Each structure stands twice: as structure tokens, then as C-alpha cells.
Simulated scan of single mutants.
Amino acid sequence: MSLRIPNVLSIAGVDPSGGAGLLADIKTFSALGAYGCGVVAALTAQNTQAVAGVHVPPVAFLRQQLDTLFADVPLQAVKIGMLGGAEVVATVADVLAREAQRNVVLDPVMVAKSGDHLLARSAIAMLREALFPQAFMITPNLPEAAVLLEQGAPETVREMYRAAERLRELLPTSDQRWVLLKGGHLPGSELTDLLFDGDRMIELHSRRQDTKNTHGTGCALSSAIAALLPQRGDQLHPVEAAVRDAHRWLAQAIATSGQLAVGHGHGPVHHLNALWRTP
């Protein structure tokens, strides 16, 4: 049975300000025509300025959330965000392997926009070894790529090419898997992301927007891709189409972020700008 509206799951942390994490992912799914499900992997005390605290629920309850959901709801895609610790990573990887879940988009969240660390260093090796084999796509930014590759962050687009190639080597080679390396940390008015499957290296360009409302942009982009992957199967290049459409959607969400007034730090993007009436 084909479903017109895909069910998409976010496994992530909760940001009470709603700009990032699970709450932002659900908004993104809704904005892009997917039905959002959510499993809480971590709780944060957080606003637009800082992360004051992190609490990781017992992994037994995390597994119960996942098992209960998978037992009932067919899922067409999964987005993974903040996981917090090595045991959490291992539990999520185990369940996804058991379910043979496709369209898993892994955003290796390590540091918040405020600079606060969101992933224990002990979990990074587990992320590479246990969760990467379950991922259809990984979406690191440049500092995250540096941590994953244990090297300095790329400082040019040319260096990004080599980093994308090395990141792809961390994924299984037996079937199609993708790396989306986000270049937003490079200076300049033009942003370049690289989409790479081990064969095709696709440059995605956009203009940098003059705004401080960039809280949760990585969460929004990865969840947008997860929402769109099941809906772009009829395209000639479905993965590229999903990523390009996700980029366009995020650019508009950033451009309209000034319509919101949330906090005094890095504000959120406007996930639902196309659905809400504005004054």
C-alpha cells in the first residue's frame, strides 16, 4: 500500500525554545507535507542564548519508545539529531539495524549554536562505528566533519572536497549512501554545500543572508531532507531533488525569520512561514 503522506520520525533532543531539536523537526515535517513522529533522546534546558543543562533519559525507556512506535507505525524516513551519549547511540543503532530502516538522515549534532557541547566525546567513536552503517545520509557541518575525521576543519571548498570523500569512506560501500557536507562556516557571501555519493560530487550554492536567526538551521535542513526523500521517488535524481528542495525551503525559512520574535540570542528560522498568515 502506497501512502500519500509519509510518516517521518525524528529521534532527537528537546529544545524548549522550539528553534532546534525535536520540536523544530516536527514543524519542518509538517511544513513539508509529512506526518511527524518523535522519540525523545535527550532533554535540554536551553534558550536562544545558551544551553544551561542536559538530561539523558534512561536508555531502557528510549528503547521502549522506539520499540512501541515501530510495532505500530510504518515509517518512510528517520531523522536523527542530538543523542547525547554512547549508550543512546548504540541503542538507536541497534533498533534501526533490526528494523532495516531506509532513508535514515543522520545529523551528527555535537555543538549548539551557542557553543555548548551536546554530544559526549566518548560517543563519537560509537557514532562512527555503530550508527554510520545505518545511515543513508550524513549531514555534518565543517566543525563536525573535523571531529569525525580527527583533523582540522576544511578552510576552502577544495579542502571540503577531500573531507567529503573521506567522510564517504566512513559509510558502507556496498550500496548508495550520501554525504552532505555543509560549508556555512566558511567566510564569504556565497555558501557552498557538497553532496557526494562516492561517485557524483554536486555543489549546492546559496547566498548568505544577513540575519542572526540561524538557531537550528542544521536540524531544519536534515529534517527537511528526511521529509522530502519519500516524496521525490518519481524524480530522475530523487536524492538530489530532495536536497535541493530542502535548501530552497530553508532559504525561505531564514528569509522570513524576522517575522518571529523569539528570545534575545540566535533566533529560530520560520519553519511554517508558508502556512501562517502574516500581518
Rank of each mutant, 00 (worst) to 15 (best):
R208E: 02
E190S: 14
L186R: 09
R208K: 06
S206Y: 02
V179P: 03
D193S: 00
G184Q: 08
L195R: 05
V179L: 05
R200K: 08
T211P: 12
G198N: 07
Q176Y: 08
D210I: 14
T192Y: 06
H205I: 06
G198I: 00
K182F: 08
T214A: 05
L180N: 05
T192Q: 09
T192L: 01
F196N: 03
D199Y: 13
E203R: 14
H215I: 11
L181F: 04
Q209P: 11
T214G: 14
N213G: 03
L204W: 00
S206L: 10
Q176W: 12
D193R: 03
D199M: 11
R177K: 11
D193E: 01
T214R: 13
I202F: 00
G184R: 14
G218A: 09
L195F: 13
K182C: 05
R200F: 02
T192I: 12
H205T: 11
D193K: 00
W178P: 12
M201L: 10
G218V: 10
F196T: 02
D175C: 09
Q209V: 10
P187C: 10
D210F: 13
G184A: 04
D175Q: 14
L204D: 03
G216P: 06
G184L: 12
N213S: 14
Q176H: 15
D199H: 15
D175F: 14
R200I: 04
S206H: 07
L181W: 03
H185S: 13
G183L: 07
K212P: 12
G198A: 07
S189A: 15
D197F: 02
H185L: 11
D175W: 11
T192K: 05
V179T: 12
H205Y: 08
R208W: 03
E203M: 06
G188P: 10
Q209E: 08
G198P: 02
G198D: 00
G188R: 06
H215R: 05
V179R: 03
E190D: 13
N213L: 05
F196M: 06
S206R: 15
R177V: 15
I202K: 01
N213Q: 08
L181D: 04
D175Y: 11
R208H: 02
H185A: 09
H205R: 15
N213W: 12
M201I: 05
S206Q: 14
R208M: 07
V179I: 15
R200C: 06
G216F: 05
D175M: 10
G218M: 13
G198E: 01
I202P: 01
R207H: 15
L195N: 07
G216A: 04
D210T: 12
K212W: 10
G188A: 01
K212G: 15
R177Y: 09
E190T: 15
F196H: 06
